[in-house]
Each structure stands twice: as structure tokens, then as C-alpha cells.
Design a binder for these strands. Structure first.
Length: 136
DNA sequence: GCCAACGTTGGC
DNA sequence: GCCAACGTTGGC
């Protein structure tokens, strides 16, 4: 089991929309490194749902329910996507500022590569962020 | 809205 | 295959 973090601008696709629809394809990724991360995802993997730009906080958890397949919105046919399902919201959102000020999280890909929209999360980081957000 | 960081494109 | 120009992301 692997853990991930997926960024979305709430203007484009928000956590509320994800919850409403439950399962949705994570299309529109046009970055090779992010695509490579999605390729590595397996059914049952979990990911944080992060609101970039507006909010800048982790708001919930999604589960990968369909592994990497071609993204129909990519005309060039180079990129793919996965399907994710809303699992649960965070009782308390975990903000970027909190993550930055937590020493144990300072080396997260989220911090180090701020432009990478799909990035891996270690098991330790996952557990700590869940705790900070009020989840077990 | 600005701008730094960084990825991509295209000329050579 | 290098690198300058350009475009995009995302924090501030």
C-alpha cells in the first residue's frame, strides 16, 4: 500500500464536488513526473486531497479505484489518469503553513517540489498528518 | 496580481 | 543535445 497527495485548485475541482460525485477521474495532468506517480498507483492506495491556491490545505482522503489509463482530454494521447473515490473528510484541515512548520514534514515532496501536482507521501508522514487532522 | 521556480519547446 | 525563450504553477 502506498500513499500519495493530489493537488486540485478548488476553482476547477473541489473536495465538495468530489464528495458529491464520489468517484471521478483525475484528468488533466500534463506533467511527466506527476503522470509517472499516477502510473505507480494501485487500486486501494490512499491519497490526500489538497486544495492549492485557495485554501492551501489538505481537506480529505481519496482512494484509488481505477489504475492508470489514457486520459481522453489529452489530444496528444501522451498522458493518462486514475479514478479516485472520496473516502472521508478531515475533521480539521491541515494547512500548508502547519506542514511547513512541522520539522518531521519539512522534506515532503509537497514542500520541496511545490509545482508537482501528484506526489508521494511516506507512511510516517501519512500517519502524522492524519493525526494533525484529527483522524486516527 | 506578482514573481520565483521549474518544465517544455524549438532553433541551432 | 544544448540552451534561450517561453509558459505554467502555485505561494505570497
Amino acid at each position: 500500500m502506498n500513499y500519495w497527495l493530489m493537488k486540485s485548485e478548488p476553482d476547477v475541482w473541489s473536495w465538495d464536488q468530489q464528495v458529491k460525485k464520489s468517484v471521478e477521474s483525475w484528468n488533466g495532468v500534463r506533467n511527466y513526473q506527476a503522470a509517472a506517480n499516477m502510473k505507480a498507483m494501485k487500486n486501494g492506495d490512499l491519497a490526500f486531497f489538497y486544495h492549492s491556491n485557495i485554501g492551501k490545505e489538505i481537506v480529505g482522503i481519496v482512494e484509488i479505484v481505477k489504475e492508470y489509463y489514457p486520459d481522453p482530454t489529452d489530444e496528444a494521447g501522451k498522458f493518462g489518469m486514475v479514478d479516485v473515490k472520496a473516502v472521508k473528510p478531515f475533521p480539521t484541515f491541515v494547512t500548508l503553513a502547519q506542514i511547513k512548520s512541522t520539522a518531521a514534514l519539512a522534506d515532503m515532496a509537497l514542500i520541496k517540489q511545490s509545482r508537482l501536482s501528484v506526489c508521494p507521501v511516506t507512511e510516517k508522514q501519512w500517519a502524522l498528518i492524519c493525526k494533525m487532522g484529527g483522524l486516527k
